[in-house]
Amino acid sequence: MVERVTATEETLQLLDKLKTIHGELMFHQSGGCCDGSSPMCYPRGEFRVGDSDIYLGDIGDTPFYMSKDQYEYWKHTQLIIDVVDGRGGMFSVEGPEGKRFLTRSRVFTEEERRELSIS
């Protein structure tokens, strides 16, 4: 099965650490149209997902959402959530750890696109 969003091992390790501090978490990719964008990570329930958001899948039992408009830019790619040194958005929970989440991507193959029914 093709996943629309996945994560590096380092990301999964940081998520585990953050869950012990903040409880259950969620991601929202708000802004950014290309590699290097930073998804925001919030304690679950602190960010309200609306009708204009799309659920892309889970990474480390953590749901990942994106706005429908932004999804149009990214729908042909698999999002790979990574973590790097540095500070991200000030409301994202990883900031105090001296880390930030980073979105990388790769274009789906033709076979994967057929499986996902992407035109």
Rank of each mutant, 00 (worst) to 15 (best):
residue 79 L to G: 01
residue 1 M to G: 15
residue 97 E to M: 12
residue 7 A to T: 11
residue 24 E to R: 13
residue 38 S to D: 05
residue 118 I to H: 12
residue 3 E to Q: 11
residue 115 E to H: 03
residue 63 P to M: 13
residue 25 L to D: 02
residue 17 K to C: 00
residue 47 F to L: 11
residue 45 G to C: 14
residue 114 R to E: 12
residue 2 V to G: 00
residue 15 L to Y: 05
residue 65 Y to D: 05
residue 29 Q to C: 03
residue 114 R to I: 06
residue 60 G to H: 10
residue 41 C to R: 01
residue 103 T to E: 05
residue 101 F to I: 01
residue 46 E to P: 03
residue 29 Q to G: 01
residue 23 G to K: 09
residue 9 E to V: 14
residue 24 E to I: 06
residue 24 E to T: 08
residue 49 V to G: 01
residue 33 C to Y: 03
residue 8 T to Q: 11
residue 100 R to L: 12
residue 64 F to N: 04
residue 15 L to P: 02
residue 110 E to V: 12
residue 45 G to D: 15
residue 89 G to S: 14
residue 75 K to N: 12
residue 76 H to P: 01
residue 1 M to D: 15
residue 72 E to M: 15
residue 29 Q to A: 04
residue 1 M to Y: 15
residue 15 L to T: 00
residue 11 T to F: 12
residue 21 I to M: 01
residue 75 K to R: 15
residue 13 Q to T: 02
residue 46 E to H: 12
residue 113 R to P: 03
residue 93 V to D: 06
residue 117 S to H: 15
residue 85 D to H: 05
residue 84 V to D: 05
residue 117 S to A: 15
residue 41 C to A: 05
residue 101 F to H: 01
residue 51 D to Q: 12
residue 8 T to W: 14
residue 38 S to P: 04
residue 39 P to W: 09
residue 35 D to K: 07
residue 35 D to R: 06
residue 38 S to R: 03
residue 111 E to F: 11
residue 30 S to V: 12
residue 94 E to V: 07
residue 58 D to R: 00
residue 38 S to A: 06
residue 50 G to T: 13
residue 58 D to I: 04
residue 39 P to H: 07
residue 119 S to E: 15
residue 19 K to S: 03
residue 26 M to I: 02
residue 25 L to W: 09
residue 110 E to S: 10
residue 106 R to N: 09
residue 14 L to E: 15
residue 2 V to N: 00
residue 27 F to I: 03
residue 76 H to T: 02
residue 21 I to C: 00
residue 8 T to R: 13
residue 37 S to E: 10
residue 46 E to F: 12
residue 93 V to W: 14
residue 50 G to C: 06
residue 117 S to I: 10
residue 91 F to N: 03
residue 29 Q to H: 10
residue 56 L to K: 04
residue 110 E to K: 14
residue 55 Y to E: 08
residue 32 G to C: 08
residue 77 T to L: 08
residue 8 T to M: 13
residue 20 T to G: 00
residue 10 E to Y: 06
residue 119 S to V: 12
residue 53 D to H: 14
residue 1 M to C: 14
residue 87 R to C: 09
residue 29 Q to R: 05
residue 57 G to Q: 09
residue 1 M to K: 14
residue 80 I to F: 04
residue 16 D to I: 00
residue 38 S to I: 02
residue 79 L to D: 02
residue 69 D to H: 06
residue 119 S to T: 11
residue 46 E to T: 13
residue 97 E to A: 07
residue 118 I to N: 10
residue 29 Q to I: 04
residue 75 K to F: 13
residue 20 T to R: 01
residue 24 E to W: 13
residue 26 M to Y: 06
residue 67 S to E: 09
residue 40 M to E: 13
residue 80 I to C: 01
residue 69 D to N: 06
residue 55 Y to W: 07
residue 85 D to C: 01
residue 91 F to H: 07
residue 28 H to L: 04
residue 55 Y to L: 11
residue 100 R to V: 07
residue 9 E to M: 12
residue 81 I to Q: 01
residue 67 S to A: 07
residue 84 V to C: 03
residue 98 G to E: 14
residue 51 D to Y: 11
residue 67 S to Y: 08
